[in-house]
Each structure stands twice: as structure tokens, then as C-alpha cells.
């Protein structure tokens, strides 16, 4: 088999393996629940029978392996069980809860990525090319300050100035299924701006570091000594070798975005999956927490896997084996 194909298959296998281990970790959570958990959920008034019935319902009476197999089987079909919190009145499945929220979060994340990725790459490459210039130094200290701040500080600052003081943008990002696209974008403006600022700072710094690393390679100096113009050194000699580091930077930051979303959604009360997870953790609604954690982890693993595969596919040593 071509070594490239073999390496990619290996990585895919490793990714699946990781997902498997992660699913076990997430699944095992239920078994770590303290003994009085059912009481905490059902309230102090719960009788022995209701507790037993509850434990049966979440399947604690079956052996763990069987429970795991059933759980994974359901998850693969998009079925995460039913929420603890909604069980008293009418039953709501986790999938029902998650679906609209997930769509909202994906909307916010893609909007941010569409702005942040090109902006950060451009800034990072420029800062690397004009290293130690005034531009570089300013961008550097601004981004260092930005990444040091908690997201909610940034979020409230923006809210205070752009929404409360200047009334340019809506302060809360409440959307529902009926919201028009344009309206949706306007309401998402502040959360998107917050996330963009944070992500751009991270991504720009990492891009700059990756490019500077690359420019220190002997073959770049050789290209200069061969009389190549600055643009040719960058485009022909640096860029083909830069895909791997740049893709890794982008993947790392998109993964960071996934997490950053949780806090920002809370600030702007945006009905996304992050908010849902926080509410579920507060209510200790385990099936929902599990589902959210699994979705976050799977996204994270997939992003990293994609980056890995792109770096492998652009590595000349693997593309052209001996």
C-alpha cells in the first residue's frame, strides 16, 4: 500500500480509537454518581420504590458492558435517551432538546470562523514578514493582552460600549427558529465579535510563530542566496511547506472556539448548546451532559484529525516515498 494511504488509515484508526475511549469515559460518568444521587434528583420525598424505578429507568440495574453497548447503539442512531429534568411532566428526548441548540451554536461558530480565520492568517503572516517592525510589536502586545483576558470580560466590555452606551448593536442574542437571517446576524453580532477577538489573537500569534520557524530553515536562506525575489521565496519556497503548521493552527483554534462558545453564549443568553450544557450541569441532568460532552469531544477530535490528515497529505516525504 502507498505509505500515504497507510499513514492516513492509521490516523483514522487512531481517531476512532480515541473516540471510543472518550465515549467510555463519558459513559462511565453515570457509574461514578454518588449513592444519594437519585434522591437529589427526585427530591427528599422520594420513596424506595420511586428510587428503584428511577435507577431501573437509567439502567443502573444492568451490567455496565451491556449498558455501554446499548448506549453506543442508541447514540449512533442519534438517540441519547431522555432528559432527567423533563421526565416529571411530559417526556422530552435529549435529541429533541439538542437539535435546535446545536444548529444555533454551529451558526455562531461558522460565522466567527468565516471572519476570524482569514483575518488571523493575514495578520499572522504580515507580522512574521515584518518581524520586529512597529506593526509587529503593536499587534503582539495587543494580542497578548487580549488572550490574557477572560472571555466574559471582553464580552461585557463590548456590551457596555457597543450596546448600552452607543446602542449600535443588540445586547442580548435571543434568537428562535423564526428569526430572519439578517436579523439573526445582527443579534449575533456581539457574540461573534467577542469570539473573533479572542480567536484572532490566538491564531495570529500561532501563525506568526509557525511562519517565523519556517523562515529560519536553511532552504529559505538558500533560496535567497539563489537570488529569488521576496515574493517568490514566500510563495514558492515557504508556502508549500507551511500548510501543515497553518492547518494545525487553524484546527487548534477552531477547537478552542468550540469551548469559548460556552461562556460567550452564557453572557449573551444565546440559545446554543453551550448554554444547554451549563443548565444541564447545574440541574445535574446527566443524559444531556453526556450528549453535549460527546458532541463537543467528537467535534474536537474530528477537527484535529482533519488537520493531521491534511499535514500528512502535504508532506513530500510521504507523498513521494523512496
Amino acid at each position: 500500500m502507498h505509505p500515504l494511504a497507510r499513514t492516513i488509515l492509521q490516523r483514522l484508526g487512531l481517531g476512532l480509537m480515541t473516540l471510543f475511549i472518550v465515549s467510555i469515559v463519558i459513559f462511565s460518568m453515570v457509574s461514578w454518581l454518588p449513592g444519594d444521587f437519585a434522591k437529589a434528583i427526585l427530591g427528599q420525598a422520594a420513596t424506595e420504590e420511586t428510587v428503584a424505578a428511577f435507577q431501573k429507568e437509567i439502567g443502573l440495574d444492568k451490567p455496565p458492558v451491556q449498558r455501554y453497548v446499548e448506549w453506543v447503539g442508541n447514540v449512533v442512531q442519534g438517540e441519547f435517551g431522555s432528559s432527567f429534568a423533563s421526565r416529571v411532566g411530559y417526556k422530552r428526548t435529549v435529541a429533541e432538546l439538542i437539535a435546535p441548540r446545536l444548529a444555533n451554536t454551529l451558526f455562531l461558530a461558522s460565522l466567527t470562523a468565516a471572519i476570524a480565520v482569514p483575518l488571523a492568517l493575514a495578520l499572522g503572516i504580515l507580522a512574521a514578514l515584518y518581524r520586529n517592525s512597529l506593526f509587529d510589536r503593536i499587534v503582539n502586545s495587543v494580542t497578548l493582552t487580549t488572550i490574557s483576558m477572560p472571555e466574559f470580560f471582553m464580552a461585557y466590555l463590548l456590551m457596555l460600549f457597543l450596546s448600552v452606551k452607543l446602542s449600535w448593536l443588540p445586547g442580548l442574542a435571543s434568537v428562535d427558529a423564526e428569526t430572519e437571517l439578517l436579523e439573526r446576524i445582527t443579534r449575533c453580532a456581539l457574540p461573534t465579535l467577542t469570539l473573533t477577538l479572542v480567536i484572532v489573537a490566538h491564531m495570529m500569534r500561532m501563525t506568526r510563530a509557525a511562519i517565523i520557524n519556517l523562515l529560519a530553515c536553511p532552504y529559505i536562506e538558500m533560496a535567497r542566496l539563489k537570488g529569488m525575489s521576496k515574493s517568490r521565496v514566500i510563495l514558492r519556497h515557504a508556502l508549500p511547506n507551511a500548510w501543515a503548521p497553518i492547518v494545525n493552527v487553524v484546527a487548534f483554534n477552531l477547537a478552542y472556539l468550540v469551548v469559548g462558545v460556552v461562556v460567550v453564549e452564557a453572557v449573551f443568553t444565546y440559545p446554543g448548546i453551550g448554554q444547554l450544557m451549563v443548565d444541564a450541569v447545574t440541574a445535574r441532568d446527566i443524559p444531556v451532559v453526556q450528549a453535549c460532552a460527546l458532541i463537543f469531544a467528537a467535534t474536537y477530535i474530528m477537527l484535529n484529525l482533519t488537520a493531521d490528515i491534511i499535514s500528512i497529505a502535504t508532506n513530500p516525504r510521504l507523498l513521494h516515498p523512496r
Binding site: V25, I26, V262, A297
Partner: peptide, 10 residues
């Protein structure tokens, strides 16, 4: 492979 904040929440 699990984002740290998510793992902590869990």
C-alpha cells in the same frame, strides 16, 4: 481529546 472546560463541566 475532550476539551478541558467541557471535561471539567462533566
Amino acid at each position: 481529546a475532550i476539551p478541558s472546560l467541557i471535561f471539567a463541566l462533566m
